[in-house]
Design a protein around this nucleic acid. Structure first.
Lengths: 350, 350
DNA sequence: ATGAAAGCGCTAACAC
DNA sequence: GTGTTAGCGCTTTCAT
């Protein structure tokens, strides 16, 4: 046993100690802290003084046990996503900040539902008051057990149960459709969709699915051809998909992309294929502004408002916690296309 | 008050209920769960049965209060880093997984130390058993209060107190030096360092500082010129820094970069400046393999082992928790340069 | 305006 | 091998 600077663990001050030193009862200290009943100025000041002297801070576990609230929210990612994407990172960030603004903390968990240890700890052991489900899929194994147990949650993305659950989502169908219409107006007749990795579709990842639906519907409504392509979440895959889509339909003059991580590679691939953007090829889609602006020429597209979404999700969840009986609410967002420099008139082909 | 599916909150089962149904005392149930004292097979089975029937799971707050351990670790980012970098994302991921492997959860916090609400909740209210400090700086306002209070923590990156604290770090000085020596062997005489954003240096961000030191020492030892440049954490800044460094010393034929997010832009800038990699310009540095492999030609460099580092940090912290009196330990990692395609002999200049 | 006391749900020392 | 009981540190009725 080596002696070191960690030895001097200070005695943990508790509310009883404060009460004793201030010459009052524990309940008085508690009420002085919560303000839930009137305390004379004199006593309050004395208590305040002692609290500051001893640096007292109420123990969170005790408080949670007595009060029934942990003031902690769970942020639950499915295990399929091995790595977080940039967009998810933004969410984590905004969720942490939004929660902090309400004196809440965020507990991170990667789990798929009931069978999962982490999930059990989170909801079963009541480590958190509510959960935020990231990367929602349909069906999503996390949803059913939560609904059944009445555990409060908000999902990022929505499944079939639109009206009975609380969620925040981007209207991917409408966003891709808007991209298609934009390209249609510019005269493009042969489009391609650059989607997310095949695994996500197989896993029922909703945004990807809805994006595809919107794309197919819009192209068919406008009488355009539209080929759908999967694409890995990385630059190399983006580069590779260009060759595939030009091979599948050489007439293609524009793409709509839902894959921001592949964007850099997409441009690289187009360069290699001898297509210049936006001269003879247009690119648009849905991505964080940061990605859209990282490429040259910068991409025209719908910017994902991660910050807003994180904040809305936290607000919705806290709302549920405060009023469990109130009707669930939803936010379906449709950010406008931000015009940049990656789309132009379809090249002449006669 | 609208009625909905959330109304049916099931009565929370507790250990007393289980004891009653199994016809034993609460302590017996507790011991059956923990295995801390022998239980007859018959009783254990009966208890087990009831537990499964009612889906009982011990309440985490109560357990934490009684046992003095929350089984939660805090992951603390300073507020300066507005967004997480890719590397930090990898850490978050690996830390969450490593913690989960030991039945622990991760609480996220953005805070700079004592004055901070989030920090107070975390350590003051004892929401977590220990903390992992990300993005350590020198001086770091989070360190002193923690040391003073004897709160267990491990930092990613190390400050002056090398031997008395627990930390995991990359030997940035040695890594940049290795890059310089590599370039020196290839005949390059005029180098530049592409660093991190100026704010990080100003904030005393240690990896950035040590990287600079190693670069300057190695270049001077080898009689090479070496110019240091700050660079924002994004592609555009990477592109911009190329112009700056070629302007400062037009003889420059190689760079060492510590800035992975700027890498794509760095390549783009070199292309615009008419330098081909590795024909007439070499690029090397420290970055996650994913980034090094995202560029063409792929970057030769030291790959950051985020996964390993996250795991080591969690192990170190749990070690501290189990044996607070043991001497602190450290891991200083020096991953080897992975040869790829971005470095070559210095171009002839006569 | 304040105090006493009964929990919150669990663990563990102390019986037997 | 099992039960009894006293906490863990706080909140909140119920008294006064």
């Amino acid at each position: 046993m080596v002696s070191n600077r960690f030895d001097q663990q200070p005695p943990p001050v508790n509310i009883g100690e404060i009460a004793r030193l201030a010459g009052v009862s524990r309940s008085t200290v508690s009420y002085a802290l919560s303000g839930k009943r009137p305390i004379s100025d004199r006593t309050r000041q004395r208590i305040q003084q002692v609290i500051e002297d001893r640096g007292f801070q109420p123990n969170a576990s005790a408080r949670a046990l007595a009060h029934g609230r942990t003031r902690t929210l769970g942020l639950v990612f499915p295990t399929v996503s091995r790595r977080y994407t940039d967009m998810q990172l933004d969410f984590i960030n905004s969720v942490v900040d939004a929660a902090a603004a309400h004196d809440h903390d965020i507990l991170l968990s990667r789990s798929d539902g009931e069978g999962d240890d982490s999930f059990r700890r989170l909801v079963g052991e009541r480590r958190v008051d509510g959960a935020l489900l990231m990367e929602i899929r349909a069906p999503d194994s996390r949803v059913e057990p939560l609904v059944r147990s009445g555990f409060p949650f908000v999902s990022m993305g929505h499944t079939a149960d639109t009206a009975t659950l609380s969620w925040v989502d981007l209207d991917f169908a409408e966003l891709t459709a808007a991209c298609v219409r934009h390209l249609g107006r510019l005269g493009h007749r042969h489009l391609a969709l650059v989607g997310r990795p095949r695994e996500l579709y197989d896993a029922g990842y909703v945004p990807a699915l809805r994006g595809r639906t919107g794309f197919l519907r819009a192209t068919s409504e406008l009488g355009l051809t539209g080929e759908v392509h999967h694409c890995g979440d990385d630059a190399d895959s983006g580069q590779a998909v260009v060759a595939r889509l030009l091979d599948r339909d050489p007439r293609t003059t524009a793409v709509v992309t839902l894959n921001e991580a592949a964007l850099v590679g997409l441009y690289r691939g187009l360069g290699l294929a001898g297509r210049s953007v936006p001269g003879d090829f247009s690119v648009t889609g849905v991505a964080a502004a940061r990605w859209a602006e990282a490429v040259t020429p910068m991409m025209t597209g719908a910017d994902v408002p991660s910050d807003l979404m994180g904040r809305l999700a936290v607000d919705l969840l806290l709302e549920r916690l405060d009023a469990p009986a109130a009707a669930p609410r939803q936010h379906l967002l449709t950010p406008p296309l931000t015009p940049r420099a990656s789309t132009g008139p379809a090249p002449d082909r006669n």
